[in-house]
Computed example of a mutant assay.
Amino acid sequence: MPGAGDVPLPPGGVHKLLNNNVVVSIDADGRERVLMGRGIGFQLKHDGRIDLAKVEKTFVLDQATDTAHARKLLTDAPYTLVQAVLHAVDEAERELGRDLGRRFPLAVIDHVHYVVERLDQGIRIPGTSMPELRILHPDESRVAEHMAASIAASLGRELPPEEGVFLTMHLLNATRDEPNGTAALLFRRVQHVVRTVETGLGTTLDTDSADYARFILHVRFLLQRLVDRTMLASGDSSFFEFAKQRYPRSFGIAEAVKAYVLAATSSTLTDEEVLYLIVHVERIATSMGRGDAGGDPSAPVL
């Protein structure tokens, strides 16, 4: 999101007034540039000229769908909210050391505007803490929490604590060099595996434990290996057979995960992948006193 000094603005270009704070200028290539700044549209309304010194932000809209959406969004959203989001986006880009693209600020403005409108109507959008996000995407989660705090401070109001989760997902869409929605799909699958383990153990996992963090990372890389077709494999089945007999409950849970993976991805986990699932599940179960090793944390797990 470059400032006015970073983008050459065509003198005497065609200007379209959206409101007193947002103006659209057509550059020499026929592209629409959205110019934002407090009061920049006021003078345009009177004498048809823009005071470039008042332009705080400008960005290019390349597609007709973006143009229509941006116009409506930037017309409807209070400028104080737009400023709050743009400031938070600037901070996020500095923290991450990268440009988040032209769609990201609009997506966040749209989201925050929706949330604030609902809060003003007394409606709370259901959310969840999603602790897996902090483990799988620590940088994006940290930056998203900072963004939520910055926006709330700029607006002088409290936002729901789960805003960090929603902003993390927006950041993932902006920062991942993969098809849109891939990160969200992978995350949902990790969540499903966690719920399968919790159902098998009959308890909620301790999301702050080291065993949980190791398990989440293992599942994430397991699912990535499925995509890359690089599943673990071994010609020696002795460890797998030992684990299968020694830890029947953890084996049953691992088999339930295997069944889910097959249904979701049409890929069958190898015995080696199932073996490592057994190991992680048994570690978690043992630390919670629910393992096949009798609840003794000192009992060996493979």
Score class of each variant (00 low, 15 high):
Ala184Trp: 10
Ala144Trp: 03
Ala64Glu: 15
Asp66Ala: 04
Lys45Pro: 08
Ala84Gln: 06
Arg188Gln: 11
Gly97Val: 12
Ser141Gly: 11
Asp62Tyr: 15
Glu273Cys: 07
Glu56Trp: 10
Thr270Lys: 02
Tyr260Cys: 03
Ile123Met: 15
Ser154Asn: 09
Glu132Phe: 02
His46Ala: 11
Glu95Phe: 13
Glu255Ser: 14
Pro179Gly: 08
Met231Asp: 11
Leu52His: 12
Thr75Gly: 07
Arg124Ala: 14
Ala88Phe: 05
Glu158Pro: 02
Phe187Glu: 06
His46Ser: 13
Ala53Phe: 10
Leu269Glu: 01
Gly97Tyr: 12
His46Tyr: 13
Asp236His: 12
Glu117Lys: 06
Arg225Leu: 03
Asp139Gly: 10
Ala144Phe: 06
Glu162Ala: 06
Arg38Asn: 09
Asn20Met: 00
Ala174Trp: 00
Val82Met: 13
Glu140Ile: 08
Ala256Lys: 00
Leu171Glu: 00
Ala152Phe: 07
Ala263Trp: 07
Ala53His: 14
Gly200Thr: 08
Gly164Phe: 01
Ile50Ala: 01
Ser298Cys: 13
Val279Thr: 03
Glu282Thr: 05
Val112Tyr: 00
Leu100Glu: 09
Ser141Asp: 03
Ile26Lys: 07
Leu232Trp: 08
Val115Leu: 05
Glu95Leu: 12
His87Tyr: 13
Ile135Lys: 02
Ala263Gly: 11
Val82Lys: 03
Glu132Trp: 00
Leu17Asp: 03
Leu100Trp: 05
Asp62Ala: 12
Arg31His: 10
His137Gly: 07
Pro300Ala: 15
Arg94Ser: 11
Tyr79Ser: 05
Glu241Lys: 14
Leu86Asn: 07
Pro161Gln: 01
Glu93Leu: 09
Arg103Glu: 15
Leu136Lys: 13
Asn173Thr: 05
Arg49Asp: 11
Arg176Thr: 13
Phe215Gln: 05
Gly235Asp: 14
Gly48Trp: 04
Arg249Val: 08
Ser267Ala: 12
Thr58Gln: 08
Arg98Met: 13
Lys244Glu: 12
Val279Lys: 00
Arg189Ser: 06
Thr65Lys: 14
Asp177Met: 09
Lys57Glu: 09
Arg124Thr: 15
Asp29Gly: 11
Phe187Thr: 14
Phe242Gly: 10
Leu269His: 01
Val60Glu: 10
Asp211Gln: 05
Ala88Cys: 03
Asn19Arg: 01
Ala77His: 06
His15Trp: 09
Leu226Tyr: 03
Gln83Met: 13
Arg220Gln: 15
Asp296Pro: 10
Tyr114Asp: 07
Thr265Ile: 09
His280Pro: 06
Ala256Leu: 04
Glu132Leu: 04
Val219Trp: 14
Lys45Gln: 15
Arg283Pro: 00
Asp66Glu: 09
Arg118Lys: 02
Thr265Asp: 04
Ala70Asp: 08
Ser234Ala: 11
His15Asp: 08
Ser238His: 05
Arg38Leu: 12
Leu86Arg: 15
Gly164Asn: 00
Gly48Phe: 00
Asp29Arg: 10
Glu132Tyr: 05
Asp29Ser: 14
Ile40Ser: 01
Pro2Ile: 15
Phe242Lys: 09
Leu205Met: 04
Arg225Gly: 04
Gln224Thr: 13
Leu269Gln: 01
